[in-house]
Structures are given as structure tokens and as C-alpha cells.
Amino acid sequence: MNNSKTLSSSPRERLTVLADSFKDVLKMGQKYVDLVDQLAQTEDPQEMLSATSQLVKLDLQNAFVDFPQHYQAADYYLIFMGRLLEKHGIDAVQVSENVRHEFIARIEPIADSDSFKFMVNGDEAAFTEQGEQEPLFYLDLKNRLMQFDNRALVNYFIVRALTSHSDLDLRNAVKPLIAFANELQTDLDFTINLGILNTENGRSFNLVQPDLDLTVIDQLFVATAENDYMLMNLPKNNGAQLVLDQGIKLDIAFDPDDYSQQWFFAVNDPTAQVSFFDTLLHYHLIRKWYLDNRSALAVRSDKMVLAPDEEESDEYVEPTEVFTPQVGTLEEDGDQHDE
């Protein structure tokens, strides 16, 4: 396509160059069709991932053949998610195409109110709620990373969705997202970070603020007087423990042997089935206290960030403007990576 070069060539050479260019483009078109086919047909998660990874990078723009850009990168991420869940028999996430040929996801049992789409930014795609643009989790196919955003989880589920849905419905809505993360881990060896959705005992979530004014804990203590839960002192005076139902305990504590006194939340329960997120969702006492004191109590998102790969950065294709992530709208009050 270099004009100065083609001008100096003979007609025969020029035709050959043109034919070669067409061949390349058609080859690319064939590859595109094959990848779409693969993503649609395969039952092998590795092949789903491989097809998706290539499709999201494929640029069909060229001077010779006008391929209609039917779907965008964001759509392939969503189709990939839908296909992987489908393979595992999870049908709570419904992926469908709207009139603008965009794929959107709806999640049972909150399908009637909210929809989700991926927002692509470089190698990372954020599964984003469309109303308030909350990026619930980030997916990085190239580096095989999947991580939830604690801040967005609180903003979307605890602050907003809870006004129109029951805690039980929202817990059910979160389940397929956790299932997707677990499938990525088991089928495709992804590194996953469930954040505050993690139910394992012993998981702790550090607060953003380096210090905690103890009067904030006093407020929780005072609030417990109105109900049956008790706030206990931890044995080494390193924080407090809220004793909830069925042996569930929420700690707001620091490691007594750590001079930095980094405060954290941790939930322990006999069956390791309750997350910090669940306690926020279920207990009005905790939710109100947490949201009233959110600037003091917000937990960190601890998002893994990989150093950009210099060599491949040139191949990166800027997504069309429809998919430019609207980072600005995410920063409602401060650093978006901090919950």
C-alpha cells in the first residue's frame, strides 16, 4: 500500500501486489470465520480461550475488502463467558444480542433490572454494570487473570441493588460470577482474586486507611446494643470480633505481632461459606456501620497489575470509540482501585 513504491512498478508487478494484498485480507477473513466458528462450536475451554484471545485482537479494517464489523471485542469476551458457563451447565447468566448487534448479559434473579457488558481497555476487559458503570471484575485473557473489584461490588450490590432486591436474590446473582471465576481457574489455570467474595476462613481484607480511629469501632459496639449480636474484644487487644448467627464471626483487627498495625476485616464461620461481602449483604447492622464510616473502613482492592510488555505494545489495536472505557465515571470519590 506504499504509493511511492507501487508507482514505480510495472503494471504486472502492481497487479501481483494487489492480488497478494487481497489474498492476505481474504486469508484474514477466512481466519476470522474459522475463529468465530471455533468459539461457537468448541466444547474445549482452551479452544474457547484461544479463539476469544485472537478475536478480540483481530482488526478487519483494510483497503481492499469491506468486512462488516459485526461484533466488537467486548462482545467476544461476553460470548466467551457465556460459553464457558454454558459448558458447566450454569444458565443464570443469559447472553443475548440487542438491536445494535451488541451482546449484553443479564443475570438471574436480577435480570429484569440490570444488564452487563464488558468494557475493553488494552488487555483488560471489565465486566461492567451498565447503569452506574461499575466494573464488577476484570478479565485479562493474555495474562490469565480474573479479579473482582471490591469497591465496585460494594457500590453496585450493597449501595444500589439492595434498594430494589432482596439479599437472597443478590447472593444468587453473585453465584454465577464466582462460578465463572472458579471455572477459569480449574479449566484454564487462571489466577483469580475473588476479593471480598472469598469465603475461605483466614482471608483478610486490608483497609485503605493506614490508621483506624477506635471510635469507629465504638460506633459498631453501640449499635449492637439494639440487637442480639455482641462485639467482643480480641484476646490480645488487637481489635474486635462481632459474633453473628450460627458461629459466624466478623473480625476488625490487626496482627498484634506486626508493628505497622495494618487493620483488616476477616470473616470466619464453621463451614467456610460466608464472605465479608455476604455479611454486608445480610446484616443491616454491619452494612449501615460500614457505609456510614466508609471513608475509614473501605477495604483495598489489591488489584494485580502486570508490567506492560514493551515488544507487543505496538501490535495493540486501539478499540473503536464505542468501547473506550469511561474511566472518569468510575472515579466517584477517589481512587477507583480502592474499595
Binding site: 471510635t215 460506633q219 459496639f221 449492637t224 446494643a225
Partner: peptide, 16 residues
């Protein structure tokens, strides 16, 4: 407010 908090705290201790 701080005074109220500490008074409420004492109330809470007594209620426990």
C-alpha cells in the same frame, strides 16, 4: 457527639 458516643458506650456496656 463524642460525649454522646462515650455515654452511649457506657449504656452499651451496661446493657451487655
Amino acid at each position: 457527639e463524642q460525649v454522646v458516643l462515650s455515654l452511649s458506650k457506657e449504656n452499651t456496656i451496661l446493657s451487655y
